[in-house]
C-alpha cells in the first residue's frame, strides 16, 4: 500500500468559528463603553488604575504559569479581561500598590492556584476585590465625586440611602453614571450597551441577568411597598451600585456559573436574594460581590442537582 500523507482525525472534521479568545475579545469589546464612561467620570485615576491592573494581571498570569511550568496562555485574553474587570470594580482613589496586590490575589490565588482558566471556582476579579475589601476596608470605602474627583467617604448612592437615610435620588445621574462609586459600576447606560452587545453575540446567556434583575426588582418592589420611607424602589436597586456590572460581566462568567439552564435560573435568583438581603438588612450598603462569590461556590452543586431530563424518559 502506498504511503500517503493525509491528516487523520476522528469526526467532526469541521468546527464552528467560536473560540475562547474570540469570546474573551467580545467581552473586551463590550467593556469598551464601560471603560470610556469610567475615564469620562474619573479621568486620570481611571486610566492609571486600568493600565496598572491589566499589566499586572497579564504579568502575574505569565509569570506564575512560567514558575509552575505550565503553558503560558496569555494569548487567550482571559488575563486582560480579568485585569479590566478588576479595575472596573475598584474605587478611584485606590493606591497603586493595593491594586497590584489585588491583581495578584485575583490571578494567583483565585485562578492559577486552582489550575488556571476554566478550573477556578470563584470569579478572579471578585475574589481579588473581596480580599482588598477585607484587608484594606478604608481604601475600599473611600470614594470620589465624579469629574471633580473630590474625596468623600461612604457616599455612594447605596451608602447614602442606607446610612444617610436620604431617598432623594437623581435617576438621570444614576443612569448615566454621574455618581460616586467604583470606576466601572456607575454608568448604567454604558453597562447596558455592553450587555446588549454580549447578548446579541450570544457570548453570555440571558437567563442569569434576567433572573438576577427580575428577582431584585421583585424583592425591592415588595420592600418598597411595605415601608416606602425606608426602602427605595426597584429601579434604584438596579441602577445603583455594582448590580449591573455584576450581573452582566461577573455572574455570567461561564467558568463559575452553572452549565444547565435550570441551574442558571437558580444561580441568578440566588445572587439576587443574597444581594438584597445584604443591601436591605445587612451591615454593608452593597452585596453584589458577596452574592456572586457565594453562588459561585454553589455552582458545582447546582450543576449536579439540575441535570436535564434524560432524552426519551
Amino acid at each position: 500500500m502506498k504511503e500517503e500523507n493525509f491528516y487523520i482525525s476522528p469526526g467532526p472534521h469541521i468546527f464552528s468559528k467560536e473560540s475562547t479568545p474570540k469570546m474573551m475579545k467580545d467581552v473586551i469589546i463590550a467593556l469598551v463603553p464601560v471603560i470610556f464612561a469610567s475615564i469620562w467620570f474619573f479621568r486620570t485615576k481611571a486610566i492609571i488604575l486600568l493600565l496598572v491592573s491589566i499589566a499586572s494581571c497579564v504579568a502575574f498570569e505569565a509569570g506564575l504559569q512560567f514558575l509552575m511550568k505550565r503553558k503560558i496562555t496569555i494569548s487567550d485574553y482571559s488575563a486582560v479581561v480579568t485585569g479590566i474587570l478588576f479595575a472596573m470594580v475598584m474605587p478611584p482613589s485606590l493606591p497603586i500598590w493595593a491594586c497590584i496586590l489585588g491583581c495578584f490575589v485575583a490571578v494567583g490565588l483565585a485562578k492559577q492556584l486552582f489550575g488556571g482558566l476554566g478550573m477556578n471556582i470563584f470569579n478572579p476579579a471578585l475574589l481579588g476585590r473581596a480580599f482588598l475589601a477585607a484587608a484594606f476596608p478604608v481604601f475600599m470605602t473611600r470614594w470620589n465625586h465624579p469629574i471633580s474627583l473630590d474625596a468623600v467617604t461612604g457616599a455612594t448612592p447605596l451608602g447614602l440611602v442606607k446610612f444617610g437615610h436620604s431617598l432623594d435620588i437623581n435617576y438621570w445621574d444614576l443612569f448615566i453614571g454621574n455618581v460616586s462609586g467604583s470606576l466601572g459600576e456607575t454608568s448604567a447606560l454604558a453597562l447596558l450597551i455592553g450587555g446588549l452587545y454580549l447578548l446579541i453575540k450570544k457570548t453570555i446567556d440571558w437567563r442569569i441577568p434576567s433572573a438576577y434583575i427580575g428577582t431584585v426588582l421583585g424583592i425591592s418592589f415588595v420592600a418598597n411597598l411595605i415601608s416606602p420611607d425606608v426602602y427605595s424602589g426597584g429601579l434604584f436597586h438596579i441602577l445603583a451600585g455594582g448590580l449591573l456590572i455584576g450581573t452582566i460581566f461577573m455572574a455570567t462568567d461561564p467558568v463559575t456559573s452553572p452549565v444547565t439552564k435550570t441551574g442558571r435560573w437558580i444561580f441568578g435568583i440566588g445572587c439576587a436574594v443574597i444581594t438584597m438581603v445584604i443591601r436591605l438588612w445587612g451591615g454593608l450598603p452593597e452585596g453584589v460581590m458577596y452574592a456572586i462569590l457565594l453562588m459561585n461556590a454553589l455552582t458545582p452543586l447546582l450543576n449536579r442537582m439540575t441535570r436535564p431530563r434524560r432524552y426519551g424518559t
Binding site: 464552528s16 467560536e18 469570546m23 488556571g116 482558566l117 476554566g118 461561564p254 467558568v255 444547565t260 441535570r307
Partner: peptide
C-alpha cells in the same frame, strides 16, 4: 485548550446530555 464551561455543548446536544461534565 481547557474547557471554560461556556456550555455551548449543552445547548446543542440533541439528546439532553452534559458533554462537558
Amino acid at each position: 485548550s481547557t474547557c471554560i464551561r461556556c456550555a455551548r455543548c449543552v445547548d446543542v446536544c440533541p439528546v439532553n446530555l452534559l458533554p462537558t461534565e
